[in-house]
Protein backbone atom coordinates (compact mmCIF):
# COMPACT_ATOMS: atom_id res chain seq x y z
CA UNK A 1 0.00 0.00 0.00
CA UNK A 2 1.40 3.38 -0.93
CA UNK A 3 2.29 5.88 1.77
CA UNK A 4 0.48 8.69 0.00
CA UNK A 5 -2.18 8.29 -2.68
CA UNK A 6 -3.33 11.42 -4.52
CA UNK A 7 -6.37 11.04 -6.78
CA UNK A 8 -7.72 13.60 -9.24
CA UNK A 9 -6.47 16.70 -7.43
CA UNK A 10 -7.84 19.93 -8.92
CA UNK A 11 -6.81 23.28 -7.51
CA UNK A 12 -8.05 26.53 -9.00
CA UNK A 13 -7.47 30.18 -8.26
CA UNK A 14 -10.43 32.51 -8.63
CA UNK A 15 -9.02 35.84 -9.73
CA UNK A 16 -10.52 38.93 -11.30
CA UNK A 17 -9.23 37.87 -14.69
CA UNK A 18 -10.82 34.44 -14.50
CA UNK A 19 -10.59 31.00 -12.99
CA UNK A 20 -7.01 29.79 -13.24
CA UNK A 21 -6.72 25.99 -13.29
CA UNK A 22 -3.31 25.60 -11.65
CA UNK A 23 -3.62 21.88 -10.98
CA UNK A 24 -6.02 20.07 -13.27
CA UNK A 25 -6.60 16.45 -12.34
CA UNK A 26 -3.35 15.13 -10.88
CA UNK A 27 -3.16 11.57 -9.56
CA UNK A 28 -0.06 9.86 -8.22
CA UNK A 29 1.16 7.69 -5.40
CA UNK A 30 4.27 7.71 -3.29
CA UNK A 31 5.74 4.57 -1.74
CA UNK A 32 7.56 4.39 1.57
CA UNK A 33 11.16 5.56 1.24
CA UNK A 34 10.73 6.52 -2.41
CA UNK A 35 12.12 9.70 -4.00
CA UNK A 36 9.70 11.16 -6.51
CA UNK A 37 10.77 13.99 -8.78
CA UNK A 38 8.17 16.53 -9.91
CA UNK A 39 9.52 18.38 -12.93
CA UNK A 40 8.07 21.17 -15.04
CA UNK A 41 8.47 24.77 -16.09
CA UNK A 42 7.17 27.72 -14.09
CA UNK A 43 3.41 27.71 -13.94
CA UNK A 44 3.09 23.99 -14.60
CA UNK A 45 1.51 23.37 -11.20
CA UNK A 46 4.31 21.58 -9.38
CA UNK A 47 4.38 23.88 -6.38
CA UNK A 48 0.59 24.24 -6.17
CA UNK A 49 0.34 20.43 -6.05
CA UNK A 50 2.58 20.40 -2.98
CA UNK A 51 0.89 23.39 -1.36
CA UNK A 52 -2.49 21.70 -1.84
CA UNK A 53 -1.31 18.55 -0.06
CA UNK A 54 0.02 20.59 2.85
CA UNK A 55 -3.13 22.71 3.13
CA UNK A 56 -1.10 25.83 2.34
CA UNK A 57 -3.16 27.11 -0.60
CA UNK A 58 -4.71 30.41 0.51
CA UNK A 59 -8.49 30.04 0.29
CA UNK A 60 -9.73 32.33 -1.26
CA UNK A 61 -8.52 32.95 -3.96
CA UNK A 62 -7.50 29.30 -4.14
CA UNK A 63 -9.98 26.45 -4.03
CA UNK A 64 -9.49 22.68 -3.98
CA UNK A 65 -12.17 21.69 -6.48
CA UNK A 66 -11.88 17.94 -6.19
CA UNK A 67 -9.66 15.08 -5.28
CA UNK A 68 -8.41 13.09 -2.34
CA UNK A 69 -4.96 12.65 -0.85
CA UNK A 70 -4.92 9.60 1.40
CA UNK A 71 -2.14 9.43 3.96
CA UNK A 72 -2.45 6.68 6.57
CA UNK A 73 -6.24 6.62 6.31
CA UNK A 74 -6.62 10.40 6.48
CA UNK A 75 -7.69 12.51 3.50
CA UNK A 76 -5.34 15.49 3.72
CA UNK A 77 -7.61 17.58 1.49
CA UNK A 78 -10.80 17.15 3.50
CA UNK A 79 -9.81 16.33 7.07
CA UNK A 80 -10.41 18.59 10.07
CA UNK A 81 -7.84 21.38 10.50
CA UNK A 82 -6.71 19.90 13.82
CA UNK A 83 -6.10 16.55 12.17
CA UNK A 84 -4.03 18.18 9.42
CA UNK A 85 -2.03 20.16 11.97
CA UNK A 86 -1.14 16.96 13.77
CA UNK A 87 0.33 15.55 10.54
CA UNK A 88 1.85 18.66 9.00
CA UNK A 89 5.28 19.46 10.36
CA UNK A 90 5.44 16.10 12.16
CA UNK A 91 4.79 13.32 9.67
CA UNK A 92 4.93 15.37 6.48
CA UNK A 93 7.37 18.26 6.38
CA UNK A 94 8.22 20.76 3.69
CA UNK A 95 11.22 22.86 2.71
CA UNK A 96 10.83 25.88 0.49
CA UNK A 97 12.72 27.45 -2.35
CA UNK A 98 14.00 30.63 -0.84
CA UNK A 99 16.01 30.13 2.36
CA UNK A 100 16.38 33.92 2.64
CA UNK A 101 12.68 34.53 3.26
CA UNK A 102 11.42 31.32 4.79
CA UNK A 103 13.04 31.80 8.20
CA UNK A 104 11.67 34.37 10.61
CA UNK A 105 14.33 37.10 10.87
CA UNK A 106 13.20 38.11 14.39
CA UNK A 107 13.61 34.69 16.00
CA UNK A 108 16.79 32.90 16.91
CA UNK A 109 17.55 29.72 14.96
CA UNK A 110 17.13 27.68 18.16
CA UNK A 111 13.55 28.85 18.70
CA UNK A 112 12.53 28.14 15.11
CA UNK A 113 14.34 24.81 15.04
CA UNK A 114 12.69 23.29 18.10
CA UNK A 115 9.22 24.75 17.50
CA UNK A 116 7.95 21.59 15.74
CA UNK A 117 9.16 19.45 18.66
CA UNK A 118 7.50 21.64 21.28
CA UNK A 119 4.24 21.54 19.33
CA UNK A 120 4.14 17.89 18.35
CA UNK A 121 5.85 16.11 21.22
CA UNK A 122 5.75 16.13 24.99
CA UNK A 123 9.29 17.29 25.52
CA UNK A 124 11.08 19.71 27.81
CA UNK A 125 12.75 22.72 26.28
CA UNK A 126 16.19 21.48 27.34
CA UNK A 127 15.67 18.11 25.66
CA UNK A 128 14.32 19.82 22.55
CA UNK A 129 17.39 22.05 22.41
CA UNK A 130 19.64 19.01 22.72
CA UNK A 131 17.88 17.41 19.78
CA UNK A 132 18.04 20.69 17.85
CA UNK A 133 21.78 20.79 18.41
CA UNK A 134 22.19 17.19 17.24
CA UNK A 135 20.14 17.98 14.15
CA UNK A 136 22.23 21.05 13.31
CA UNK A 137 25.31 18.88 13.53
CA UNK A 138 23.67 16.25 11.33
CA UNK A 139 23.07 18.81 8.57
CA UNK A 140 26.72 19.81 8.71
CA UNK A 141 26.76 23.15 10.47
CA UNK A 142 30.20 23.69 11.97
CA UNK A 143 30.41 24.93 15.51
CA UNK A 144 26.69 24.14 15.98
CA UNK A 145 26.82 24.81 19.72
CA UNK A 146 27.62 28.47 19.21
CA UNK A 147 25.50 28.90 16.11
CA UNK A 148 22.33 27.47 17.70
CA UNK A 149 21.30 30.78 19.22
CA UNK A 150 22.27 32.95 16.25
CA UNK A 151 19.77 34.86 14.09
CA UNK A 152 19.07 33.91 10.46
CA UNK A 153 20.92 36.94 9.05
CA UNK A 154 24.13 35.59 10.54
CA UNK A 155 23.96 32.60 8.17
CA UNK A 156 24.72 32.37 4.44
CA UNK A 157 22.14 31.08 1.95
CA UNK A 158 23.45 27.52 1.98
CA UNK A 159 23.58 27.52 5.79
CA UNK A 160 20.01 28.79 6.02
CA UNK A 161 18.84 26.02 3.71
CA UNK A 162 20.61 23.55 6.03
CA UNK A 163 18.74 25.07 8.96
CA UNK A 164 15.47 24.70 7.02
CA UNK A 165 16.29 21.05 6.38
CA UNK A 166 17.18 20.50 10.03
CA UNK A 167 13.87 22.06 11.04
CA UNK A 168 11.89 19.90 8.61
CA UNK A 169 13.59 16.67 9.64
CA UNK A 170 13.70 17.15 13.40
CA UNK A 171 10.50 15.23 14.15
CA UNK A 172 11.50 13.08 11.85
CA UNK A 173 8.84 13.02 9.09
CA UNK A 174 7.71 10.12 6.92
CA UNK A 175 7.44 12.38 3.86
CA UNK A 176 9.61 15.36 3.01
CA UNK A 177 8.31 17.72 0.35
CA UNK A 178 11.19 19.77 -1.07
CA UNK A 179 10.01 22.61 -3.31
CA UNK A 180 13.01 23.68 -5.42
CA UNK A 181 15.29 23.66 -2.35
CA UNK A 182 18.45 24.39 -4.34
CA UNK A 183 17.26 26.76 -7.05
CA UNK A 184 18.39 29.88 -5.21
CA UNK A 185 21.83 28.44 -4.38
CA UNK A 186 25.19 28.26 -6.16
CA UNK A 187 26.07 24.96 -7.87
CA UNK A 188 28.74 24.11 -5.32
CA UNK A 189 26.31 24.70 -2.46
CA UNK A 190 23.58 22.87 -4.38
CA UNK A 191 25.86 19.84 -4.57
CA UNK A 192 26.32 19.99 -0.77
CA UNK A 193 22.58 20.22 -0.12
CA UNK A 194 21.70 17.39 -2.52
CA UNK A 195 24.30 15.11 -0.90
CA UNK A 196 22.84 16.03 2.50
CA UNK A 197 19.26 15.22 1.49
CA UNK A 198 20.41 11.86 0.05
CA UNK A 199 22.35 10.99 3.19
CA UNK A 200 19.57 11.94 5.60
CA UNK A 201 17.01 10.11 3.51
CA UNK A 202 19.06 6.92 3.76
CA UNK A 203 19.41 7.32 7.50
CA UNK A 204 15.79 8.17 8.21
CA UNK A 205 14.12 6.09 5.49
CA UNK A 206 11.67 8.81 4.58
CA UNK A 207 9.95 9.37 1.23
CA UNK A 208 10.81 12.57 -0.64
CA UNK A 209 8.82 14.57 -3.17
CA UNK A 210 11.43 16.68 -4.92
CA UNK A 211 10.11 19.58 -6.99
CA UNK A 212 12.50 21.11 -9.49
CA UNK A 213 12.79 22.47 -13.01
CA UNK A 214 16.33 21.11 -13.34
CA UNK A 215 16.45 17.70 -15.02
CA UNK A 216 20.07 17.32 -13.95
CA UNK A 217 19.18 17.44 -10.27
CA UNK A 218 16.44 14.86 -10.78
CA UNK A 219 18.71 12.37 -12.54
CA UNK A 220 20.98 11.86 -9.57
CA UNK A 221 18.41 11.95 -6.81
CA UNK A 222 15.07 10.49 -7.81
CA UNK A 223 13.76 6.94 -8.21
CA UNK A 224 10.79 8.04 -10.27
CA UNK A 225 9.98 11.25 -12.14
CA UNK A 226 6.73 12.93 -13.08
CA UNK A 227 6.73 15.63 -15.73
CA UNK A 228 4.04 18.29 -15.42
CA UNK A 229 2.69 20.60 -18.09
CA UNK A 230 -0.19 23.06 -17.76
CA UNK A 231 -1.41 21.61 -14.46
CA UNK A 232 -1.33 17.98 -15.52
CA UNK A 233 1.09 15.08 -15.37
CA UNK A 234 2.10 14.32 -18.95
CA UNK A 235 4.59 11.56 -18.29
CA UNK A 236 5.75 9.43 -15.40
CA UNK A 237 8.44 6.78 -15.38
CA UNK A 238 11.37 5.48 -13.39
CA UNK A 239 14.32 7.85 -13.74
CA UNK A 240 16.34 5.65 -16.10
CA UNK A 241 13.48 5.18 -18.52
CA UNK A 242 12.49 8.82 -18.44
CA UNK A 243 15.98 9.94 -19.40
CA UNK A 244 16.79 7.22 -21.91
CA UNK A 245 13.41 6.49 -23.44
CA UNK A 246 11.09 9.46 -22.94
CA UNK A 247 7.88 9.03 -24.91
CA UNK A 248 5.87 12.23 -24.47
CA UNK A 249 6.85 14.91 -27.01
CA UNK A 250 7.09 17.51 -24.23
CA UNK A 251 9.55 15.43 -22.18
CA UNK A 252 11.63 14.88 -25.32
CA UNK A 253 11.58 18.57 -26.20
CA UNK A 254 12.56 19.53 -22.66
CA UNK A 255 15.57 17.22 -22.79
CA UNK A 256 16.66 18.47 -26.17
CA UNK A 257 16.68 22.09 -24.99
CA UNK A 258 19.22 21.46 -22.18
CA UNK A 259 22.56 22.96 -23.25
CA UNK A 260 24.94 20.69 -21.31
CA UNK A 261 24.60 17.70 -23.58
CA UNK A 262 24.76 19.51 -26.88
CA UNK A 263 28.11 20.25 -28.51
CA UNK A 264 28.92 23.91 -28.92
CA UNK A 265 28.06 25.62 -32.15
CA UNK A 266 24.92 23.65 -32.77
CA UNK A 267 21.64 25.49 -32.32
CA UNK A 268 19.77 24.45 -29.21
CA UNK A 269 16.40 22.89 -29.80
CA UNK A 270 13.65 25.26 -28.79
CA UNK A 271 10.00 24.56 -28.13
CA UNK A 272 8.01 26.98 -30.29
CA UNK A 273 5.35 29.14 -28.67
CA UNK A 274 4.42 29.62 -25.04
CA UNK A 275 2.64 27.55 -22.38
CA UNK A 276 -1.15 28.01 -22.57
CA UNK A 277 -3.12 30.50 -20.53
CA UNK A 278 -4.64 28.33 -17.82
CA UNK A 279 -7.58 30.67 -17.28
CA UNK A 280 -8.92 29.88 -20.76
CA UNK A 281 -10.50 26.55 -21.68
CA UNK A 282 -8.08 24.18 -23.39
CA UNK A 283 -9.47 21.90 -26.06
CA UNK A 284 -7.69 18.58 -26.39
CA UNK A 285 -4.06 18.20 -25.39
CA UNK A 286 -2.60 21.35 -23.78
CA UNK A 287 0.74 20.79 -25.50
CA UNK A 288 -0.73 20.24 -28.99
CA UNK A 289 -0.22 23.85 -30.25
CA UNK A 290 3.53 23.57 -29.56
CA UNK A 291 3.93 19.90 -30.49
CA UNK A 292 5.55 18.88 -33.75
CA UNK A 293 3.59 15.64 -33.83
CA UNK A 294 0.14 17.02 -33.11
CA UNK A 295 -2.82 16.26 -35.36
CA UNK A 296 -6.41 17.55 -35.45
CA UNK A 297 -7.33 14.60 -33.27
CA UNK A 298 -4.91 15.86 -30.54
CA UNK A 299 -6.54 19.29 -30.56
CA UNK A 300 -10.01 17.80 -30.08
CA UNK A 301 -9.49 14.94 -27.67
CA UNK A 302 -8.44 15.15 -24.07
CA UNK A 303 -5.50 12.80 -23.46
CA UNK A 304 -5.46 10.70 -20.28
CA UNK A 305 -2.34 9.48 -18.53
CA UNK A 306 -2.12 5.78 -19.43
CA UNK A 307 0.54 3.13 -19.07
CA UNK A 308 2.56 2.48 -22.19
CA UNK A 309 4.90 0.02 -20.48
CA UNK A 310 4.66 -1.40 -16.94
CA UNK A 311 6.93 1.36 -15.59
CA UNK A 312 5.98 4.26 -17.81
CA UNK A 313 2.76 6.21 -18.33
CA UNK A 314 2.27 8.93 -20.91
CA UNK A 315 -0.56 11.34 -21.64
CA UNK A 316 -0.09 11.48 -25.39
CA UNK A 317 -2.76 10.11 -27.70
CA UNK A 318 -0.35 9.37 -30.50
CA UNK A 319 2.05 7.48 -28.24
CA UNK A 320 -0.87 5.50 -26.81
CA UNK A 321 -1.99 4.61 -30.35
CA UNK A 322 1.61 3.61 -31.15
CA UNK A 323 1.78 6.24 -33.89
CA UNK A 324 4.99 7.87 -32.59
Amino acid sequence: MPLLEVTDLRTTFHTRSGVYRAVDGVSFSLAKGETLGLVGESGSGKSVTCYSLMGLVPQPPGRIESGTAMFDGVDLLHCAPAQLRAIRGKRIAMIFQDPMTSLNPYLRISEQLIEPLLIHEKISKADALARGLAMLEAVGINDAGNRLHAYPHEFSGGMRQRVMIAMALITPPEILIADEPTTALDVTVQAQILELIKKLQNELGMAVIFVTHDLGVVSGLCDRVQVMYAGRIVETADTRTLFHAPRHPYTKALQRSIPSLQPKGRELYTIPGLPPDLSKPIAGCAFAPRCEFSTDYCRRTDPKLAAVTPTQATACLRVQNSEI
Binding site: V187, Q192, G216, V217, S260
Partner: peptide, 20 residues
Protein backbone atom coordinates in the same frame (compact mmCIF):
# COMPACT_ATOMS: atom_id res chain seq x y z
CA UNK B 1 31.86 18.26 -10.81
CA UNK B 2 29.06 20.09 -8.99
CA UNK B 3 26.92 20.47 -12.14
CA UNK B 4 24.21 17.83 -12.11
CA UNK B 5 24.21 15.90 -15.41
CA UNK B 6 20.84 15.01 -16.91
CA UNK B 7 21.86 11.37 -17.30
CA UNK B 8 21.12 9.02 -14.41
CA UNK B 9 24.02 6.58 -15.04
CA UNK B 10 26.70 9.24 -15.36
CA UNK B 11 25.23 11.25 -12.51
CA UNK B 12 25.17 8.31 -10.10
CA UNK B 13 28.56 6.93 -11.07
CA UNK B 14 30.25 10.34 -10.85
CA UNK B 15 32.68 10.89 -8.04
CA UNK B 16 31.68 14.28 -6.85
CA UNK B 17 34.20 16.73 -5.46
CA UNK B 18 31.95 18.40 -2.93
CA UNK B 19 33.45 21.66 -1.74
CA UNK B 20 33.15 22.21 1.97
Amino acid sequence: SAIPTPNPEIERAKKRLVLA
